[in-house]
Design a protein around this nucleic acid. Sequence first.
DNA 1: GTCTATACAGAGATAGAC
DNA 2: GTCTATCTCTGTATAGAC
Lengths: 200, 200
Amino acid sequence: MSAKTDTTTLILDNAQRMVQTRGYHAFSYADISAEVGIRKASIHYYFPHKSDLGRELVARYRESVRSQRRWICLQTSVPEERLQLFAELYRDMLRSGHPEAQGRICLCASLATDLMGLPPAVREEIQSYYIESEAWLAEVLEAGRSSGLLRFDGPAPVQARALFAGFQGAMLLARAHGDAEQYCMVAHRLLAQLGLPIAE
Amino acid sequence: MSAKTDTTTLILDNAQRMVQTRGYHAFSYADISAEVGIRKASIHYYFPHKSDLGRELVARYRESVRSQRRWICLQTSVPEERLQLFAELYRDMLRSGHPEAQGRICLCASLATDLMGLPPAVREEIQSYYIESEAWLAEVLEAGRSSGLLRFDGPAPVQARALFAGFQGAMLLARAHGDAEQYCMVAHRLLAQLGLPIAE
DNA sequence: GTCTATACAGAGATAGAC
DNA sequence: GTCTATCTCTGTATAGAC
């Protein structure tokens, strides 16, 4: 219950939710102001420019997902289970929010759309997120193949990127269809193709 | 050489390119004005509201892709080859533009990010696009499985959605990595997983 | 059809008081 | 730290002349 409730965190939390649901260019300092309960000008005290806010948003998100991957590695050392738990991170994002999920997708999937219209500093954070995520998946895939539990051809980094692309796209599709469960079905299928026994 | 060059088409072409590269909220009537060479106010003659422009954009795109799918069906009746050609539609989008591809992704992938901040009429067009595309892929997949050339488990519509999600996500990733060829590698891997022989 | 001119709202941002 | 006040720029949209 002792969640951090300092102003910086409140601003970031609300900004992140809005980017995940509406995109970078569709939220403003005025929107945050209304949610957090302080005036527009006060937000500039914490984040002088919107690009500062954007960069910090991605940096924090990267660190958060990184820490969730570490958590996954503590839970299990079975490659299939690690992939399954990773898929569930994104499932939980889609489901999060009020009763009927509003549909939050991966922060970086949302930002990747506007990529070309984003400050360079933000763009680089996004690229790093993708590189990190794909590298982790590649490691897990390779471990699974070595142990004979996963089956796929070609280099693990390519398979990792294909799997990751599937997750990112599945989030977009699930939200467009207005049904978070569509994500789960697709994720399940993607993992099953790797030779996973029926799980979850 | 007799491409339509009427003003309506010019506006739509430029607007589409900007949405595909920057997103819906990151282009304005002023931007189009500069590209097409008429004043902002004149654009309102063709599209009174931006939402009118957005709706027409997706409707035209839907029809265009629909017609390209028909073209694919005329080229070949081999399921694997149809999937391959479909994947190449998106590859060509990523590559299109000036020498070094600027990275145009699927119009609907771009719009799907801002989905919640879009006029309902636009949102419905996008959903229809996804439903159509997935239905076509499901048909092709089922035909391939029947003929013994493709291998996958479970219902074809789910596999179709997983494949489509892979394409959409691969476009996002390829652009984020700044390399359209990454899309090709992922698309190739996605198709190979369906039991395709090494092609192209 | 295309123009000039203008209205109006919202955006990001700053100055300076408390 | 947070406020009020203000600024400038941009975005969407309309009116009316040509």
